[in-house]
Simulated scan of single mutants.
Amino acid sequence: MRALLQRVLEAKVVVDGQTTGEIDHGILVFLGLGKEDNLEKGKKLIDKVLKYRCFDDEQGKMGWNIQQAGGGLLLVSQFTLMAQTQKGLRPDFGPAMPPADAKALYEQLVEYAQSQFAHVQTGIFAADMKVHLVNDGPVTFNLEVE
Rank of each mutant, 00 (worst) to 15 (best):
E40R: 12
K43R: 15
K43E: 12
L143W: 06
D47P: 10
Q67C: 07
G32D: 08
M97D: 13
E22K: 15
G42L: 01
A102V: 13
V134P: 00
A100S: 14
G88T: 10
D136W: 01
L75G: 00
L74Y: 00
G71T: 03
H25D: 11
K35I: 15
L109R: 08
I27V: 15
R7N: 08
H132Y: 15
F117C: 13
N38M: 04
D57P: 09
V139M: 03
V14R: 01
I66E: 02
Y106S: 08
E10N: 13
K130C: 06
I46R: 01
L105K: 10
I124N: 08
L33Y: 03
L5Q: 01
V8T: 05
M1G: 04
L89D: 14
E107P: 09
A100I: 06
A118F: 06
G32A: 10
A11C: 12
V15R: 05
V110L: 13
G42C: 03
V134T: 13
N38L: 03
G21M: 00
P91A: 06
K87D: 11
L50D: 03
G26E: 02
Q84Y: 04
L45F: 02
V15D: 06
P91D: 09
L109C: 14
R2S: 00
T80R: 05
Y52N: 09
G94R: 14
K43F: 04
V120L: 12
V13E: 05
F55S: 03
M97I: 14
L4Q: 00
G32S: 10
G94W: 03
